[in-house]
Structure formats: structure tokens, C-alpha cells
Simulated scan of single mutants.
Amino acid sequence: MSRKAPATPAKSPAAPGRPKDLEKGSAILDAARRLFTTLGFDGASMDQIAAAAGVSKLTVYSHYGDKETLFAEVVKSYCEQQLPASLFEMQPGVPLRDRLLGVARAFFSMIVSSEAVAGHRILCSPRMADSPLPRMFWEAGPQRVQDAFAELLRRRMAVGELEIDDVPRAAAQFFTLLKGEPHAKLMFGCLGAERTEQDTERHLAATVDMFLRAYARR
């Protein structure tokens, strides 16, 4: 008479955790952002980025293909962190002016950060004139933000708060006005230390009010 083999105890499910490739991808983006900010696009090598991320150079290439794509992914990741999708949700209980001011503050805080200033200067260098990088940057960063904001405007139009004939143009105008003179001075290195948070808040509020004078439904 044969004996039955003892039942194999059921394996407990693996503890939840982040997949290894996502952890590596995140480490690569963090390292690339630091090195692009401090060394510039040309100064930061894939070897340096791999070493700073604690991975092999082959791993960097397998995740992002080349340095241009990695730069664009850094831009996209940074924009998503600073301007998350939740920032552009409808939130019908929040007055329109307050919603626009929330977007304005987050956007302005992002574009005056050291990472954004460094990225802007990289793209303005002569070497980038014939490079695909500016277009990749635009699609990964500014275009994504404008598209998300345009959807917010459309939703506010649908409930009768705004009247806009050309929504993409209005979205572009909003962010261009927000950058305005303060951002231009910052890029030229002549934004004085005397500028205060109150100055910034007045600039943002004036921009939002101008936008609403143009597009708020009367």
C-alpha cells in the first residue's frame, strides 16, 4: 500500500514591493537630473550617470536608449512631480480664480527652480541649434503642461465659466504671461535679490486676473 506524499505547504505570497526595474529607472532619473543640473548636458556622461545611480551603463541604455531620450525623460518626470495631473482636475467646488492661481503658483515655482533654469540654459546653447533635444524637451514638458491645462479650461467652459475660441492658444498665453519679465530677468542673471515672495504673488495674481478679463464669461 503506497503512502501519500505529505502535502506541500502553500507558499505565502511575496511581500508587496516595487519591481526592481522601476527602482533602477527611478535611480537613473534622479542621478541624471542631478548631473545635468550641475554639469550640463555635454558635461554629464552616461558613465557618470550610471555610477551615480548605482547601476551599469548597459542598464542605463536599456532603460532609456540614449542621452537625449534620458534628458527628455528627466524633463517629463520633473514636470509630472511639480505639476501632477491632480493639479488640472476639475474641482468644481473651488472657484475658478483660485484654481488658476493654484496652477500659476506651481508652474512659476517649477520654472524658477535651479533644475529648470539649468535645463533652459542647456537648450539655449549653440550646440542645441541642430539637435532634436529642444523638440523632445518641448513635447515632454511644456506641451504636456499646456495640453493638461487646456483640458481644464474646456471643462470650465462646459459649465459656463469661460468663453474661449481657441483653447490651445489661450493655454499657451497663460503660461507665457506667467513667465513674463521675472523669468526673462532670471535667465539673464539680473533678477535682483530684492524681489520678494509678495512681488511674485502680485505678478501671478495680476496674470490670472488679466486672463480672466479676456476669457471669463460675462
Rank of each mutant, 00 (worst) to 15 (best):
55 V>Q: 01
94 V>M: 14
120 H>S: 15
147 D>H: 14
64 Y>F: 15
88 F>Q: 05
81 Q>N: 09
120 H>P: 01
154 R>I: 09
102 G>S: 11
79 C>P: 00
127 R>K: 13
128 M>G: 05
100 L>F: 05
146 Q>F: 04
65 G>Y: 03
107 F>T: 04
139 E>H: 12
123 L>W: 07
161 E>G: 04
109 S>M: 11
115 E>T: 06
151 E>K: 08
117 V>Q: 08
91 Q>R: 14
149 F>C: 03
93 G>L: 05
118 A>C: 10
69 T>R: 14
138 W>I: 03
63 H>A: 05
115 E>M: 04
52 A>Y: 08
60 V>G: 03
160 G>T: 14
127 R>M: 08
86 S>F: 00
67 K>P: 03
111 I>G: 06
51 A>F: 02
98 D>P: 01
109 S>A: 14
154 R>K: 15
136 M>R: 15
144 R>W: 02
152 L>P: 12
114 S>L: 09
95 P>D: 10
64 Y>V: 04
108 F>C: 07
116 A>V: 02
58 L>C: 09
79 C>T: 04
138 W>F: 13
100 L>W: 07
76 K>T: 01
100 L>R: 03
158 A>L: 08
57 K>I: 10
92 P>K: 05
94 V>I: 15
143 Q>G: 12
135 R>V: 13
80 E>A: 11
158 A>C: 02
139 E>I: 06
55 V>S: 07
88 F>C: 01
77 S>A: 11
121 R>C: 10
119 G>K: 02
153 L>P: 08
148 A>H: 13
80 E>L: 08
120 H>D: 14
99 R>E: 10
99 R>L: 14
144 R>M: 13
152 L>E: 04
96 L>D: 09
53 A>H: 02
165 D>I: 08
121 R>W: 12
121 R>K: 15
71 F>T: 01
74 V>G: 00
61 Y>V: 14
156 R>V: 07
152 L>C: 04
158 A>R: 07
83 L>C: 06
87 L>A: 06
71 F>G: 01
161 E>C: 11
84 P>L: 04
91 Q>G: 00
63 H>N: 09
74 V>K: 00
